[in-house]
Simulated assay, not measured.
Amino acid sequence: MWLWSRLHTWSSLACTVFLLLLCLTGLPLIFHDELGDLLGHAIAAPDLPPGTPPADLDAVVAAAQAQRPGEVVQYLIWEEDPAILRLSLAPSPSASPDALTTVLVDARTGRVLGEPRDREGFLYWMLRLHTDLFAGIPGKLFLGGMGLLFLLAIVSGAVLYGPFARHGGFGAVRRGRSARLRWLDRHNILGVVTLSWALVVGATGVVNTLAEQVLAVWRADQLAAMTAPWRGQDPVAAPGSVQAAVDAARAAAPGRQPFFVAWPQTMFTSGHHYGVYLRGDTPLTHRLFIPALVEAETGVLTDLRPMPWYVQALLLSQPLHFGDYGGLPLKLAWAVLDLVTIVVLGSGLWLWWAGRRGGTR
């Protein structure tokens, strides 16, 4: 038990400050959509009669490009609100994600609704602190390491609490003893009660920090195999109809709807294809995408295959990490558990500091 005690103490101390930061910044992110509406960041589409047909996607693209002259579309994304389409534009087809600007277009009329302020404000700062500490990929990998230490602290804490619980002490707070001992019991109880949730959130958080690496493996493996016949050819200079590409992909995968379209030369396709990413309509398949590659010049579907298991694990981890599966009730449960974890982390720091002071005296 001495080894487990040392593992628990030092793995906890190494990550606690950063875990407190992640819990504090993650709390408002659980309610990202609701806070966005409250802060006035949301851009709504006008009410139209039910059954209004969708606009032609080529007209939608033209409207977005007219809003941002001289820029080209890299991505077309279907929002959760079916009346809104999100288009990401950049100065060139292969420009980095940092150069992207966003234009929202009414999916039914093809009219521009506005340009959301995605990279400013309270929620943006919370998101950047939570995901990468404003340090990019190195920041994400560092937080991933802290997440691994957090998982080690959880497991070692459960092992240490096991003998106490087996002897009838589960859930007990020993009275008549020192304040530190009573807080130790409370710390242990809260830690064990939130054990499963903390493991899920910690593990999914670690997976999310590896998003760039996971996608890089997929591009080098499966995407490279799907686009091998076009390797070495010059990229398409003027892509054809995006509406035709989406129609071809939907015809090849009945029952699935488009989630986003990647233009040629972006990271989710090749220099010769539209990448049309389709999803299902169940809570599970809604999160799992199937990429369909459509030749940008001819509109002919060339390949369609499910994502490999490691990309699917990433896709499932992202919404699970923020409790974004079951609507507002699950978000509220996530928030309560987040607050309890803050108490566990804070009490752990206090217990360690109080123990050192007691040992010195």
Rank of each mutant, 00 (worst) to 15 (best):
H286E: 08
R256V: 10
Q257D: 07
D221R: 14
D281F: 08
W309I: 15
R250Q: 07
A249D: 07
E295F: 09
G326E: 03
D221G: 11
L284M: 01
Q213L: 07
W218M: 02
Y277F: 11
H321Q: 10
A224H: 07
L304K: 10
G255A: 02
V340L: 13
V343F: 15
V214D: 04
V340I: 12
W230Y: 14
V300D: 09
L320S: 09
V201K: 14
P283A: 06
V236C: 13
G275M: 11
P258V: 03
L320G: 04
G326L: 04
A211F: 03
L288Y: 06
L288G: 02
P239E: 00
L314C: 12
Y310L: 07
L223Y: 04
P306Q: 06
V207N: 12
L320I: 15
D338K: 08
V311W: 06
S270D: 13
D303P: 03
T204C: 09
A245C: 13
G255D: 03
A248V: 03
S317D: 07
G232C: 09
W334Q: 00
Q222K: 00
G271T: 15
I290V: 12
A228V: 05
D281Q: 07
W218F: 04
D338G: 14
G323E: 08
L301H: 09
V214R: 07
W263Q: 09
W263I: 01
V344W: 11
P258T: 05
A248D: 06
D303S: 10
A245N: 13
R287H: 05
P319N: 12
S317Y: 15
H272D: 10
T302V: 10
P329L: 11
L210I: 00
Q233M: 14
G275P: 11
D234T: 07
F260N: 01
V214C: 05
P308F: 02
W263H: 07
D247R: 12
W263C: 02
G323F: 05
G327R: 03
W218K: 03
L316K: 06
I342R: 12
T269C: 00
D324S: 14
F322H: 11
P283W: 00
L288M: 07
P306K: 06
P291G: 01
T209A: 13
V236L: 12
P283V: 04
Q265C: 01
M267C: 04
V340Q: 09
G323Y: 06
G299S: 08
E295T: 12
Q265R: 08
Y277C: 02
